Amino acid sequence: MSPRTDTQNEKIRLERKQQIMNVALKVIADNGFSNASISRIAKEAGISKGLMYNYFESKEDLVINIMLEGFNQLTNSFDPNHDGVLTEEELHFFIDQSFQTVEQNIPFWRMYFMVLLQPDVYSIITPQLEKILTPFYKTAINYFASQGYDDPVTEVRFFAAIMDGVGLHYIMDPENFPMEGVKTKIHQLFKCK
């Protein structure tokens, strides 16, 4: 058997890293940040604690990576053609994608809300999240300004608060939350003026 190529080794490394992140996401979502030790995550991932540190410097680094990956997936659907200009169709596409993302990844959103509510943990990831969210907010502010809103900054925060609220309520009670009805109401609320 011939030795693996650099490409094969990198593929294996990325797959293992993703496996660790998936396990960590579940452990943190189920047990909370403070109860999710590196040892526990490593054990559930089927690797040694020492090997964990080959992929992530710390539990905080692991959480940062999980959060950044989740937000990158979400914000990529915000301006799908990446031209820096949001259209009404793209905003509504983002709404649909956001609902789908929440429905398909409850553990991520459970962890997200846990992190938001723990200031010491949230402060660790804030600089990295700001890098992702700043262009998102600028594009959204420009969109609401172009639609004639008097206070586009407030409108963006209102929009973000609604979307966060939907996510929070859905993950608390996914069987009974009227996702389609709420999605329809949000689409109606953000039609062009």
Rank of each mutant, 00 (worst) to 15 (best):
T5C: 09
T5M: 09
K11W: 04
L14H: 05
Q19I: 00
N22G: 01
L25R: 14
A29M: 10
N31G: 09
G32I: 07
S34Q: 12
A36K: 05
S37K: 03
S37P: 03
S39D: 04
I47Q: 00
I47V: 07
S48R: 00
N54C: 00
Y55K: 00
F56M: 03
F56P: 01
K59Q: 10
L62M: 14
L62W: 03
V63F: 02
M67Y: 13
E69R: 13
G70N: 08
G70W: 10
L74D: 09
L74M: 12
L74R: 13
T75D: 03
N76L: 08
N81G: 04
H82I: 04
D83S: 07
L86P: 06
T87P: 07
I95Y: 08
Q104G: 12
I106P: 07
P107R: 08
W109A: 05
L116D: 05
Y122E: 11
Y122M: 14
S123H: 08
T126P: 01
P127F: 04
P127I: 05
F136A: 05
Y137H: 13
N142A: 14
F144M: 06
A145E: 14
S146C: 07
S146Q: 15
D151H: 10
R157C: 03
F159C: 03
A160T: 07
A161P: 01
G165W: 06
H169Q: 15
P174G: 14
F177D: 10
M179I: 15
V182L: 12
K185S: 15
F190L: 14
F190A: 07
F190P: 06
K193W: 04
